[in-house]
Amino acid sequence: MMEIVVRWSSPLPAEERFLRLLDDVEQGRFAAYRQEADKRRFLTGRVLAKTVAAERLGVPVESVKFDATCEDCGKPHGRPRIPGADLALSISHSGDLIGLAATPSIPVGLDVETTTRRADEGLIEYALSPAETASLAGLPAEDRAAAFFVYWTRKEAVMKATGKGLRIPLKSITFSRHDEPARLVFSGDAALNPATTRLADLKAADGYRAAIAVLTTDELSVTEEHWTP
Rank of each mutant, 00 (worst) to 15 (best):
S10C: 08
L110K: 04
H77D: 09
R79Y: 00
P194V: 12
T103D: 07
T115C: 14
E125G: 10
A195G: 11
R40T: 04
T44I: 05
R154A: 01
T217M: 12
R117T: 03
G138P: 06
S9T: 12
P76N: 14
F30A: 03
A131R: 14
P80R: 05
P104N: 13
D67G: 00
A211D: 02
V5N: 14
R46C: 03
E55W: 13
L21D: 06
A213C: 14
L97G: 01
T228L: 14
T196I: 05
H93P: 00
F186L: 15
E132C: 03
I91R: 03
A32F: 08
A213S: 09
K171E: 12
E71V: 14
A195E: 13
A127Y: 02
E55Q: 15
L57S: 13
I82Q: 12
E121T: 10
K65H: 13
E113A: 08
E132K: 04
E36M: 11
Q35A: 15
D111H: 05
K160C: 06
G188R: 04
M2I: 11
A134T: 09
P181T: 06
E36F: 04
V222N: 08
F148A: 10
D72I: 14
L202R: 02
T216I: 08
S63R: 03
R34G: 14
F175H: 04
K39W: 02
S94F: 00
T153M: 03
Q35I: 09
F186N: 12
S129N: 02
G28L: 06
R154H: 03
A54M: 05
A210S: 10
P169H: 11
S105T: 08
L123D: 03
E36K: 13
S94P: 00
G84L: 10
G28K: 06
R167Q: 08
L136A: 12
P194M: 13
V108A: 04
R118K: 14
A205K: 15
L202D: 03
P83G: 09
P181G: 08
D143S: 15
G122A: 15
G78T: 10
K164N: 01
R20D: 09
T174M: 06
I124K: 11
L139M: 13
S63L: 00
P104A: 15
D24E: 15
G58N: 09
V64A: 05
W8L: 15
D86P: 11
S90K: 04
M2S: 13
L100R: 00
E15V: 12
D179G: 05
R20L: 11
V222H: 05
S221Y: 04
K65M: 07
A211I: 01
P140F: 08
E15Q: 15
R198Q: 13
A119P: 07
A68E: 11
T217D: 15
K65V: 15
P194A: 13
D206R: 15
G95K: 06
A134P: 01
D38P: 01
T116Q: 08
S94K: 00
G138M: 09
D189C: 07
T133N: 07
D38E: 13
V158Q: 04
A145L: 05
W8G: 07
V214C: 01
L97W: 03
V6P: 08
V47T: 07
R81S: 15
G28Y: 08
L110E: 06
A211E: 04
E36N: 11
G95W: 04
D96L: 10
